[in-house]
Design a binder for these strands. Structure first.
Ligand SMILES: [Mn+2]
Ligand SMILES: [Mn+2]
Ligand SMILES: [Zn+2]
Ligand SMILES: [Zn+2]
Lengths: 169, 169
DNA sequence: TCCTAAATAAGAATCATTACTATCTAATAA
DNA sequence: TTATTAGATAGTAATGATTCTTATTTAGGA
């Protein structure tokens, strides 16, 4: 699949999902999605904002963020890194894996023999010198499941204000 | 190994590494390391600070951060999450893996069949509902390798000021 | 074309983290 | 034991990414 074909497939999905969700297709939103969908660099919000200023000199950074999170809600993009903002520290230097709760930020250790045995994949070498491999299982912890297990509409719009966790999903 | 034994092993290492690196063992540093080493919750700096106020009412948040990074430099703790601070977005919704440069924050996609085939490990279930598994290879990208390949003392103290990346390692 | 809920721009606010600086102290040697 | 001093700390200001607030604009349906 060429780069152009990939972009088109993603755009189709964008239109389809946006329509399904009753999301307005503004020029800003379209431009933001196109930029991310056509990029291989996993850009951050500032970078996207800087690029888009060329065609939308007045676009605000806030719009970029709002749009990206909307797209994430629709499953059209993913947020990388963490969604939690605080750094977390770990004194366990044995090889192990983490379970992370995407709601409250809980992190717990576990050890799985198969995962611990994984070597650095050869594909990584093309980008530079690989040093280690991290495996993270993401989900929702037992405590958070208990909190509001039932009654979750597909579009959970509880305003999160500012907790340790920046966003849902 | 009991919890107490684990803590003692870690403390041994702390003293050994600190001595080796000529690091002063202050009451604050010892307390910070003990707290992290005795915890299973991967605490953040604020949390550590709050706990330590009980025994050191005057301890500053800055000391907590400085100490944690020092410990990280010595390989006694790891920083989780990302060291990059900016969120990054990804429109590739096919299963794939990432290579991440710990110096400049570059992120690139790759696909490894074995990694893509990994299922959620059973050990994760004890913590709640697991949803997905992320694999990240961390290292140094080609461009960064070129920049200052030689002449790196073991303790690279270039002041990082504030770039997109918060820290080395 | 008109209406209205949703989206935007602008800028203030927040929060985690880092920087600055005056003081303090652990480690060493006299 | 005391003096010395490089390294560490507390306190506080600064920074930078992200989110919030509000007045204005607009997409899309009637
Ligand atoms: Mn851990
Ligand atoms: Mn990707
Ligand atoms: Zn949780
Ligand atoms: Zn790099």
């Amino acid at each position: 699949m060429t780069k152009r074909e990939t972009l088109n497939v993603r755009l189709e999905r964008f239109y389809a999902e946006a329509r399904k969700a009753g999301l307005r297709i503004t020029p800003q939103r379209l431009a933001i999605f196109k930029l991310v969908a056509g990029s291989v660099s996993h850009p951050g919000a500032e970078e996207i904002h800087r690029q888009l200023r060329r065609s939308f000199p007045m676009i605000s950074l806030d719009t970029v963020y709002r749009t990206l999170w909307k797209l994430a809600d629709l499953g059209l993009v993913s947020a990388l890194g963490q969604e939690r903002i605080q750094l977390r520290f770990d004194a366990n230097q044995n090889r192990h894996q983490h379970f992370t709760c995407k709601r409250c930020g809980l992190i717990r250790d576990f050890t799985n023999a198969r995962l611990s045995a994984l070597g650095i994949p050869s594909e990584a070498a093309q980008f530079g010198q690989a040093e280690d491999l991290r495996v993270e299982v993401r989900g929702v912890c037992s405590a958070c499941l208990r909190k509001k297990a039932p009654g979750e509409g597909k579009n959970n719009n509880s305003k999160p204000k500012t907790s340790s966790i920046r966003r849902r999903t």
